[in-house]
Design a protein around this nucleic acid. Structure first.
Lengths: 306, 306
DNA sequence: GCACCAGCCGAAAATATCTTTCATGTGTGA
DNA sequence: TCACACATGAAAGATATTTTCGGCTGGTGC
C-alpha cells in the first residue's frame, strides 16, 4: 500500500517517468546544480562529495551538516529525481558500495597552464571518458526510444544547432542521410524558422543546445512544435526553456569546466554520444532499408580514395 | 537513551564491535541460519534471495512478504549484525548496486539489430571510451608538441576535412578562432587548393582524414607543403599517402567497425580528442592572449541566452 | 492426560524519522 | 521605494521503525 502511494506520487511527472538513478547521481547533481537554490546546492554538493558519509545520516543529520533544514534536504532529493529522502539515501548507499568495489582513480585535477603535453592528453582523455559514462548513465532510455521511433517514421527531419552544437547537428544529419532518411541541419536561425513552419504532424524537429536557452535554436523548435511536428530537445539543462516545446528531452551531461577547458568541449562529447545512440536506434528500426543504404554510401566513397 | 540500549545490546559480542557486513551478507545468512527460528529464517532467506527487491521494502512490507511481523524482521536484522532494519536495508541497497555493476562486462559483443536501446547506449559509450583510451595511448606527444608549436606561432592556419572529418576540421577552426588565431576550415576541394597556394612558410596546414587516402584532402595539403607551409596530418593510417606531405603526423586510433557502426563514428571520436589536445596545447602556449580571448567570446555569447 | 515452562511470535504502543505546511525573510525588478 | 516572487526553516503532520508486552506453541515431567 505504501508502495502504491509512492507509485502514484511518482507518476504525475510524466508517463515514462525516469526511474531513480543508480550511479548517475554525481552526473545528475552537476546537471541540475545550476537550477538549484543556494541551500539546495550545499546539500547536493555534500551528497555528491561524500555519498557514503551522507548515506549514514538521517534527514536531520544531513540538514545540520549542510546548515540547512530538513525541508531543503527533502526538496533536493526530489529535484534529483527521488520520491523522497529515504530513496535518495538508498541510492547513496548503492553508490558508496559501487565506489568501494571499483576504486576510483580520481584524476580530478584540472588542466593547468604549465601541464606537460602528455598530461594534457591523459587528462583530456580521462575527462571525456568520464563524460561518456555520465551521459550514458543519465540518458533516459524511454525518451530515447520515443525519439527513435519518431525519427524512424518521420517524413522529414530538421535539426537545429548553433556554434559547437551546430556541428553535432550536422553530424546527425549526415548520418541520417546515409541510411536513406530525409534530414537537414540548420544553423541559420532565419532559415531554420522558415523551414520549421513547413513541418507538420509526422515530421521531426530536433534542437541541440547545451545551455537549453539558446534563443536562435528555441525559436525554430517552437515553430515546429506549434505546427504539429514531433519535437526533440538534446540539452544539458532539462529544465531550460527549450524543453517547453519538446515532446522528448534527451539530457546530456555537464561536467565541470575550467578556464582552459570550455564547457563546449565536454558538452560536444556528450551530445555526440546521444546523437550516435539516436542514429543506431533508427538504423535498427529501419534495418531493411538502412543496411543497403549504408552499404551503398560506403561503396560510393570507395573510389574517392586513391 | 535508546542509543544506550542499543549499545548495551550490541556490546556483549565483544569490545571490538563488528561493523556492518558489506557484501558478505549472503554468507552470513547461511552461517547464521541454523541458529535462527523459523520465521527469522524466512526473513533471512528473502533477504539473501533478492537483496534488491527487499531493499525496496519497508519493515512492514518485508514482514508481509515473509508472512511474519515487523518485530521479527527487526530481530533478524539484529542477528545479522546491524543495529536495526534501517541499516540492513542500506546494506541491501549497496549489495544490490554491486551486483548490478558486476554484471556489466558482457559488452564485448557487437551491436546487434535486435539489441534493446539500453544496450545500445551502454555499448556505444563503452566503445567510445575504448577509442579514447586507445587514442591517448597511441598519440605521439613529440609530434603533438611540434604541431602545437607550429600552430601557436602560425600567421594563419588552414584545416582540410571532408565528410565526417569536415566537421572535426570545423570544430578545430571554431576553437582556434576563439583564442584569437586565424584559422579556416575547407571542405570544398577546389577552394581548399586555391587557398593552400596562398600559404607560405610560418603558416600551418592540417589535413584530417581517417583513411589517409582521401584525394580531396591530400591535394590541398600537398599544395601547402610545396609552398613551404608547416603541414600536419591527422589520420588513422600513418602509412597512408597523406603522410607524404606531412611534417607532423598525429595518429588516430582505428577500432573495429560493424555493419551498424560505421568507422566514421569511432574515428570521429578519436579525431576530436586529438583536435582537443591540439587546442589546449596551443591555448597553453598562447595563454597571455588566449585567456582574455576565451573570456571575451564567452561573454559575447551570454546575451544570446534568454 | 494434564499442568507447566521456555521461548517464539506478533499486535500495538512508543519512538524516531521523514514529509508537508505555512509563516517569515530576502533579494529583485518595476 | 514598493511590491512581488521565491527561497527557507520551524513546526505540525504522516510514516516508518523499534520496543514492549502478552498470547501462543511445543515440548516435558508427573
Amino acid at each position: 500500500m505504501t508502495q502504491d502511494v509512492k507509485e502514484i506520487f511518482g507518476s504525475p511527472g510524466g508517463p515514462g517517468y525516469a526511474p531513480p538513478a543508480p550511479a548517475a547521481l554525481t552526473a545528475k547533481v552537476r546537471t541540475l546544480a545550476p537550477s538549484m537554490t543556494r541551500s539546495m546546492q550545499r546539500v547536493a554538493e555534500a551528497v555528491a562529495g561524500d555519498p557514503a558519509g551522507c548515506a549514514a545520516l538521517t534527514v536531520t543529520g544531513l540538514a545540520e551538516l549542510t546548515g540547512t533544514s530538513e525541508a531543503t534536504v527533502v526538496r533536493t532529493a526530489r529535484l534529483l529525481g527521488y520520491p523522497g529522502y529515504r530513496d535518495l539515501r538508498l541510492a547513496l548507499a548503492g553508490l558508496a558500495a559501487q565506489q568501494q568495489s571499483g576504486r576510483a582513480p580520481a584524476l580530478t585535477t584540472d588542466i593547468a597552464v604549465d601541464d606537460p603535453i602528455a598530461d594534457v592528453v591523459a587528462k583530456l582523455a580521462y575527462d571525456e571518458q568520464q563524460t561518456l559514462a555520465d551521459t550514458a548513465a543519465g540518458l533516459d532510455t524511454v525518451q530515447l526510444g520515443a525519439a527513435v521511433a519518431a525519427l524512424a517514421g518521420a517524413r522529414r527531419t530538421d535539426v537545429y544547432g548553433i556554434g559547437a552544437s551546430g556541428l553535432v547537428a550536422q553530424d546527425l544529419t549526415q548520418k541520417l542521410l546515409r541510411i536513406g532518411l530525409i534530414a537537414h541541419a540548420h544553423s541559420d536561425p532565419h532559415l531554420a524558422v522558415t523551414n520549421a513552419v513547413q513541418l507538420r504532424s509526422g515530421d521531426v524537429a530536433i534542437a541541440i543546445t547545451h545551455s537549453g536557452s539558446t534563443g536562435d535554436v528555441i525559436e525554430p523548435l517552437r515553430a515546429a512544435f506549434e505546427h504539429g511536428a514531433t519535437t526533440v530537445a538534446i540539452t544539458g539543462r532539462p529544465d531550460g526553456p527549450v524543453t517547453q516545446y519538446a515532446d522528448h528531452v534527451l539530457t546530456t551531461s555537464t561536467s565541470r569546466e575550467s578556464e582552459l577547458r570550455p564547457a563546449a568541449m565536454s558538452s560536444r562529447t556528450s551530445q555526440l554520444l546521444v546523437v550516435d545512440c539516436l542514429f543506431i536506434g533508427v538504423a535498427q528500426r529501419t534495418y531493411e532499408t538502412a543496411a543497403p543504404a549504408l552499404a551503398a554510401s560506403y561503396e560510393a566513397l570507395a573510389h574517392r580514395h586513391r
